[in-house]
Design a protein around this nucleic acid. Sequence first.
DNA 1: TGTCCACGTCT
DNA 2: AAGACGTGGAC
Length: 414
Amino acid sequence: MIDHPETDLNSQIEQALQLWLSDNKKQLSLLLLSWYDTAGRDLPWRCTKNPYLIWLSEIMLQQTQVTTVKTYYHRFITAWPTLSALAAAAETDILKAWEGLGYYSRARNLLKTARLVAEQYGGQFPENYQALLKLPGIGEYTAGALMSIAFNQPYPAVDGNVVRVSARLAAAHLSNQKPHNRKKVTAFIRELMPVDRPGDFNEALMDLGATLCVPAAPHCEICPLSGICQAYLTNRVSLFPVSRQRRLPREEKHIVLLTTKGDRVLVHQKTGQGLLAGLYCFDWLKITKNEQKTDEHNRIDHQVSFQIKPAPDDPVQIEMSPEQVIGQLRLIFPDAGIIDLGRHRHVFTHIRWYLHGFLIDQPYNRDQDTPKDPAADFWADEQQLQALPIARALEIYRQRWLDWSRHKKEPGRT
DNA sequence: TGTCCACGTCT
DNA sequence: AAGACGTGGAC
């Protein structure tokens, strides 16, 4: 006998979904929509059918919770009330307005799609699922949300909430992480879509998942679907959906240098498609196992002057005291004042950053170290620095520099 | 304060 | 398919 755990799992999912459909298909939409009509959330983007506003909100809602999105949504519709206004914006302005929301490729794709729709579709989003899918930043979920909410057509919009609700309803061992499972849920939901209110139906499912059928400690006792929820009826709610195994984030150590001349600090725009692309950063030194080099997106000045030796008993962990770093920096910048800006830890999904910031206070008239790439590097004054899009991870150092700069200008005020 | 967890798209 | 991509909230 050969074990086929994967096959068994897939057939359990298929059978559970089919069985549940055959018993409960007809009851769901009425129960769900009546609940939604009284308990659904009152959200800013639900008072419109404007595809531009629906699209904007849905892009923001990808990987981001409603409460966080509200501020940004308001900011965007105020600055760019129409698609053509957004299409005419500069990318840096979009990124600045997006600053802090994360997953910055969403902002870059937002602009790409706005321009594409303005130019190729006369400013109107196509009322066509396949055409929407081709637009940058629009995947299956968002295409389905637009088709159903903005265009009133019966397309499922399967997000993590819908997978969780489906898994519990049918007691199916679904995992939100498996693309194949999302397709199964899409087929399942397609069977349940009412033709008269597809948008409300999708939003109702997501609301239920966000407010009652939450991941931990769901409120089954007040859930309108508890009577047809197989997981609840068999007292197994906590088993669904299947939770994934999480990888540990890799660890990286960096020195952040706020290289300053007079009242300006050197900044650099990250290019390409990678981490924090399009955002601005300071000078940057990456500490690796037994050598040191700069992040590939950043400047490569000064690296020769750093010789960082691995600790003898632990070659992976490099410990360099602030005093040692300051000592090195004094060699590189003999005329400058060096200020320790402190350590900062920042955790991404996949990386754990240990940052240590230093401010290099150089005299006014020193004119070496001119940026190599004037388009990407420049010396920013206070106002410019505040106007640049910068990641959360570096926000603390920006603030420290601004505080320092103001204090230097008006030393009487502490 | 730290750890865990949530949230879709692209490659 | 599986990993890259960021942040904030819950505990």
